[in-house]
Amino acid sequence: MEKISGHFPQIIAMILFTIGLSTLLLHRNLIKKIIGLNIMDTGLFLFITSVGYISDRLAPIIINGNTDPSLYVNPVPAGLVLTGIVVSVSVTSITLSLSYRLYKRFHTLNLDEIYLLAADEEER
């Protein structure tokens, strides 16, 4: 039990990751799959941010020229999350524009109907 309370943010991050994964797998609507991908990425960012945090310390902006490292939090995870968020935004924009094109062509967002309509197209 102490393990769970000691690792609380990391466990929540893993639960978020699993919620995103289940949304990706179990829903048929394309927009919901994209939302699932986003939730998965959010879980990962929460995980790495909670890894870098040290209790009772400040953010890594040097105050009054005092560069003692025991006053500040680890700055590396912040940089990793920054890159991750930018990648997540780019990926979301491309997948949303793909779903827009698919909707204009097939008038549905359900992946199975899209496969069927595309297979019909090939037979004709």
Binding site: Q10, I11, F47
Partner: peptide
Amino acid sequence: TVCSLPEFGVVNSQMKEVSDRYVQSGMK
């Protein structure tokens, strides 16, 4: 997996080598 990693809010001794230099010598 996550429960066998270091606890939340505790100093992780492996990460000190890299992050200490960023904080200590970063400004200089």
